[in-house]
């Protein structure tokens, strides 16, 4: 991670979150209602600013997300969403503790309209967090969740602004009104960019499905070619949000890693997608020639950003897709650096890209260690999981200068990272991809 640029964007984030507090400090102080009251107000304002910046975090601004990898930004968006809910909830709790009579304001029938707006805003925010954290528990499909998430998030911010406007505390003077109007306009501008401008840009750069190939292990490789434009330039290992068949305005996109080399002719790109949900199970029935839209590339999981004398890849399940992109690119470039791949799968007959990996071994200095959870009787290779012993047995003596790329289920990634650290591989040389974004 380029530390200088990362520090700059963290400072920008904190500046945006804390800006309302600083600006309000510079203005006239409203009549004193006590220390707890002011802490409560400050938490409410900062919480609202955090809510606004949440829209910026997922707006996929390349320059701001590149130093971290956009997967990390989405994870931060998720966790800081929980934190901001606690900050916002502290606002009414402190007001009520300070003055229990204010509890009556929460009654939506008897209380003033601006207090009801505040209560509904908080309920919308609670709904956003619950639906996101427990989406799979509730069996909520990805696409309806995204629409619900967007509507509730906009409602939470809009109603919070109505609440501030109505309460008139730190919002009465013309310049304070200006601050909150500028904030509201900024949120509207980001939402317009995400929901209107970017989909419109994607609409102007369509792709066509030119190939669908069934792979081992309930996976499909989908090949796309740009329709009337030159396509996109990506780094091996990156990913994109893919819309198939529908319109980019309909929020039906899903994130997938490229599995192809960026050196393919005619701007061709390929995604390898495992059947895991409603959308992925329908991939096989997509007709050739169908329209597709590709929002990308994103992500920092790429050998191109980490020059090294050799690389180690650790893949589990469909985590092999971005690794294939990197291996194919290295092969297309005629790279002869030593490469080592650990690839864990449940069964040999279902292992995605088994044959493609064997073919790459003739073009690369590539050693492959297959690790099978349920090996056939005749299997002589590694069995079970990728353990510390398996890594230690196969990692080369000169492991220190190599960079390691780990991609698989989150639990596997965490275990591998711990094991690599235990084996003396510096964490700065271990790179992983978080692909369970929701």
């Amino acid at each position: 991670m380029p530390l200088g640029r990362a520090a700059f964007w963290i400072a920008v984030y904190l500046g945006l979150v804390l800006a309302p507090l600083v600006v309000l400090l510079l203005g006239p102080t409203p009549p004193g209602l006590g220390f707890r009251w002011d802490v409560s107000m400050a938490l409410g304002f900062a919480g609202l600013a955090m809510m606004g910046v949440q829209f910026v975090l997922t707006a996929r601004f390349r320059r701001a997300t590149a130093p971290f990898g956009i997967d990390l930004i989405y994870y931060f968006h998720r966790y800081v969403g929980i934190v901001l809910l606690l900050v916002v909830m502290a606002h009414p709790v402190l007001v009520i503790v300070d003055n229990p009579a204010t509890l009556g304001f929460l009654n939506p029938v008897a209380g003033p309209w601006h207090m009801s707006a505040g209560v509904i805003s908080l309920l919308a925010l609670i709904g956003v967090v619950i639906a996101s954290v427990w989406r799979r528990t509730f069996g909520l499909a990805y696409e309806p969740w995204r629409v619900t998430h967007a509507i509730l998030a906009v409602a939470a911010v809009g109603l919070a602004l109505v609440h501030i406007e109505g309460v008139q505390y730190y919002a009465a003077s013309p310049w304070q009104r200006l601050l909150w109007r500028a904030f509201a306009l900024s949120v509207v501008a980001v939402v317009c960019y995400v929901r209107v401008i970017r989909p419109w840009q994607l609409l102007r750069r369509p792709y066509r499905v030119t190939g669908i190939v069934r792979e081992r292990g309930d996976a499909w490789t989908l090949t796309l070619e740009p329709d009337g434009h030159r396509g996109l330039s990506f780094l091996p290992g990156q990913f994109a949000w893919l819309t198939l068949g529908g319109s980019p305005f309909l929020m039906q996109e899903h994130p997938f890693s490229f599995s192809s080399s960026p050196l393919q002719p005619r701007g061709r790109v390929a995604f390898t997608i495992k059947e895991l949900g409603d959308f992925t199970r329908a991939i096989g029935s997509v007709p050739r020639g169908a329209a597709a839209f590709v929002d990308g590339p994103y992500g920092a999981f790429t050998t191109d950003r980490h020059p090294a004398p050799g690389y180690v890849f650790v893949a589990g399940g469909i985590g092999i897709a971005p690794v294939m992109s990197m291996l194919r690119t290295l092969a297309d470039r005629g790279d002869r650096r030593p490469l080592l791949l650990f690839y864990a799968y449940r069964r040999w007959d279902r292992m995605t890209f088994r044959e493609a990996i064997a073919a790459l071994q003739s073009r690369l200095d590539l050693t492959v260690v297959f690790v099978l959870e349920e090996p056939p009787e005749s299997w002589n290779g590694e069995r079970g999981w990728i353990t510390r012993e398996v890594l230690d047995r196969h990692l080369p003596e000169d492991r220190l200068p190599r960079h390691v790329f780990v991609c698989g289920p989150e639990a596997m990634t965490q275990v591998i990272e711990r094991q690599l650290r235990g084996l003396g591989v510096p964490l700065s040389q271990v790179h992983s991809e978080l692909f369970e974004l929701v």
Binding site: T29, V39, V80
Partner: peptide, 30 residues
Amino acid sequence: MRCALAQVVAVATGGLVVLLAVLFALVQRG
């Protein structure tokens, strides 16, 4: 590691916001 990093930075952000909210109130009330 990246997942833990996201969690730590999110919690640290929350801590900083609470700290500055307290500072805000202290400055406002002299």
